[in-house]
Structure formats: structure tokens, C-alpha cells
Design a protein around this nucleic acid. Structure first.
Lengths: 227, 227
DNA sequence: CGAATCATTGAGGAATTTCAAGTGGTGTGG
DNA sequence: CCACACCACTTGAAATTCCTCAATGATTCG
């Protein structure tokens, strides 16, 4: 499973937007009170690997990918973050992966120190931070199973099922990311992703309305692949 | 990168051993005070996926592997835990992977509720728990890079370098795990692991004193592979 | 010492990558 | 509004890597 390097993301400065507050019981809620909204254009880097981790981020609209890069340019997308999901939280002072806007995106940004400060006084907040990281760990561990054990068809099927869950939940999926993003997430090449998609379509497991609009026609078949 | 199923672990009952206390400032330290030592024989399951997570574990001697299983028997080893390392801590009440003794092992076991109780009162303990999980997350994210981007030679090289770091630090490595364990960790077959090892030996990058005793002869070459 | 497990090696085949070309859509400037 | 340029996606054919199956060696353990 080797593949060609992927070109990297642009880097720009940050805007500042008005806030709008709600809900205070959870971190996710209290974030609204403390954070500011910042728009990022497609493919712009939100933070880079090795940079100081000063903020916690939450997707307001759009989609974000987190990546790790190999020196020769090969890329592993470690995850996608969709509306409502948080990312970039670190207990130590440094980011261990980079984050980029998959498409035009608005991110809610909160000072890390504020969160940490809360956690120092409120054991429940502390626990939520921990739980957040733990959920992320689970997600990534599950993905190891995909990367370590599955063939191309299984990988794509698993990916589509996962995306369906995170989207409306129905059988129509609108993919925000490119084939290259998917490929780098699944540890394969664009070409193989593409071929596998058409193959699934021929199997009548999915329908391809357009390259980014996918319909799950036979969930059972898709699920069975993962067996 | 598909492969044959791997046979699973035995399951036995648990012993109880006398304790010996030390050091109270860190969790790792205070664990000694609260925990009991339990020996596990080679290939015995310490806990299973889906079981209630009642304890936190720390390796006193021996080595542990954590795994996830696919229904058809394929296995992904998600990590190895060596002397001094902790595992099995979960913020929620359930284990999301299983753990097995790679060889005869002694594990220090501490009640989860005790730890959580401490954390509720001491923000610093809470933070250590979080940091523990976060370090694990980092480790796993790095491994995604291996599984997603690297070829066989790179994977094995990366693995050996990592093992050298965790061992004495010198150039001699004593591998506690089988080729099958390594294969399932690296997402390849035993045969390919074996072949790759001999290939690295022919490249004069490593020496194979025995199948489990490996000498790093050319660290530069091994590192360069990862470039 | 023999049985069993673990590790290595070989040969052939399957899956995926690579390289190359072609298609389709989208935005921009004329 | 069209033409062109650009980018994302698809498809084909050849090459490669890794897996599978099978046999042989080595090591461990009773």
C-alpha cells in the first residue's frame, strides 16, 4: 500500500467574527460563550503539526481534515471533522497533527487556557476533556482496523457507511472531500478509490448521482463486506 | 494488504499476589499503593473487548498486546505495552479493545473507581489521566502513518527502531513477540515480515542473531527508509 | 527424542499501484 | 454566452508489491 505524494495546503491569516452564545452545561456549550468564529477558505491550514496548541476548535460549518505528513510528501489523513465536532484539543502545548479546511468553513475557536482553567476548578469539565480525547482515541483505533486488515472494497464501504451515519443518516450522502482526501484517509490511491466506487456501483451496492453525491442502494451488501 | 485470520487467545482465572508500595506523587506512583500484582501466562487474555472496564493496568514484567478482532478472525494488534507502561484506562465503563499477555507477565492492577475518585478531588490527577489517554492517541496516530503510507520494508524498519527506543536504547533488541504478532501489528502477513527481515539483513541494515534477537547495524539506512 | 509451534523460503497469483491518457465539470475572461 | 484553462475524476494497461499456498527448517517443551 504505497502511493504518490499529495500536494499540501495553503496558509493564510485569520479573520475575526462576532459571536453568538448558547448553553453552558457542557464544554461544547460553554465554548459558544468564550469563542470567536473564524472563516477558513478551502484548503487553508488551520494549524500545523508542531505549532503551539493555543486553541480548541469546533466546526460551525464546512468540513475539516487532520493530517500527518511524511517527509517525502506522502500524507495520511487521520480524520475528518464535520459540523458540531471539536478538534485540536491537546493536553500538552503542541499540536501533533495539522488541520486544514476541506472546503470553505467556519470554525469556532476557544482559548485553550480558558478551558484548562475551567477544568482545574471543575472536575466534571476535566472529565469531559478526557472523554473527548478518549472518544477520539476510539475512533482512531477503529480506523487502524480498516488500515491494517481491510481490502479496497471494504475500506470504501466502511467509509461510506461511516459518512452516511455522520450525515443526515439517510441513504443519500454528500461528500465534502475530494477523492484524494478519501484516498489519503483510507491509505490507497485516488485511482483505486475511483475504481472501487464504480465497482460498487456495478455491484448495485451504491449509486453515483455525481462524484460527490452517493446513494446507498444496498446497505446490507456494504455492511457484509466488513464482516 | 489483506491477510489470513489469526487464532485467538486463551482465557483463564486470576491470581492474587502481595503488593509492594512506592512513590505517591504521580498516578503511576500511587498505583503501587492501591494495586495488586497479578501474573498472566503467555497468550492469556487480560480483558476482552466489550467487557466492563473496572481496572487500570500497568506492566510489571513481560509484555502485553492490545487487539481488535474482525468477525472473520482477522486481527489488528493496536499496540504493545512493555515494562512500566500502563494500559486499559477508559473514561467510560467499557473496554474498546482486548488485551493479552504476549509472554508470561506480571501486571499491576488498580481499581478504576479508586483512580476516578482521586481525579474528582485532585485536578492534577485528572490531568494526568487525560495526558495518559492523549499520549496513547498520539502513539496510535503515528501508527496510522505506518499503516496508511508505508511499504513493507519501511514498516518493519519503523517497528525495529521503535522497539530499540523502548528497550535498552542500544542497538541490540530482544523481541518478546512472535512474527505473527508483529505482522498483525504492521498490517501484513508473517511471511512478508519474515522475508523483509532477511532482506534487511542482506542489506546489512540489521543482524539476526536469532529470530528474536536483532541487532541494528545501520540505523541510518533504517531511518532513511522512513524519510 | 518426538510433537508442536514458530520461522523461513519458494513459486504462483491476486490486488493495488504506477504511468498515461481521456472525460467532465466549473469558473473566468473575452 | 462562449471558449478556454484548470482541476477533479475516471479508465486502461503494465508493473510491482504483497499475499496465498505449500514445503522445509529451527526451536521449544513435554
Amino acid at each position: 500500500m504505497l502511493m504518490r505524494p499529495t500536494t499540501t495546503a495553503t496558509r493564510t491569516s485569520r479573520y475575526q467574527f462576532p459571536r453568538s452564545g448558547v448553553d453552558v452545561n457542557t464544554i461544547a456549550g460553554s465554548m459558544e460563550l468564550m469563542g470567536i468564529r473564524i472563516p477558513y477558505a478551502r484548503n487553508v491550514e488551520i494549524f500545523g503539526e508542531g505549532e503551539p496548541a493555543e486553541y480548541l476548535y469546533k466546526v460551525v460549518s464546512g468540513t475539516v481534515r487532520s493530517c500527518k505528513l511524511l517527509d517525502d510528501g506522502r500524507r495520511q489523513v487521520t480524520g475528518f471533522y464535520m459540523v458540531g465536532e471539536a478538534f485540536g484539543l491537546e493536553p500538552d502545548e503542541e499540536h501533533h497533527f495539522s488541520a486544514e479546511a476541506v472546503n470553505d468553513t467556519v470554525i469556532l475557536v476557544v482559548k485553550r487556557s480558558a478551558i484548562i482553567g475551567l477544568a482545574a476548578r471543575d472536575a466534571d469539565i476535566a472529565r469531559q476533556l478526557w472523554a473527548m480525547t478518549a472518544r477520539e482515541l476510539q475512533r482512531v483505533q477503529n480506523h487502524m482496523l480498516v488500515l491494517g486488515c481491510m481490502g479496497a472494497k471494504q475500506r470504501v464501504a466502511a467509509f461510506l457507511l461511516q459518512m452516511a451515519l455522520r450525515g443526515s443518516g439517510g441513504d443519500e450522502i454528500e461528500l465534502p472531500m475530494s477523492r484524494q482526501d478519501i484516498a489519503d484517509y483510507l491509505g490507497m490511491t485516488v485511482e483505486t478509490v475511483s475504481r472501487t466506487m464504480t465497482q460498487l456501483e456495478n455491484d448495485a451496492a451504491i449509486g453515483l448521482a455525481s462524484s460527490r453525491r452517493i446513494v446507498l442502494r444496498d446497505r446490507t451488501a456494504l455492511t457484509r463486506l466488513n464482516a
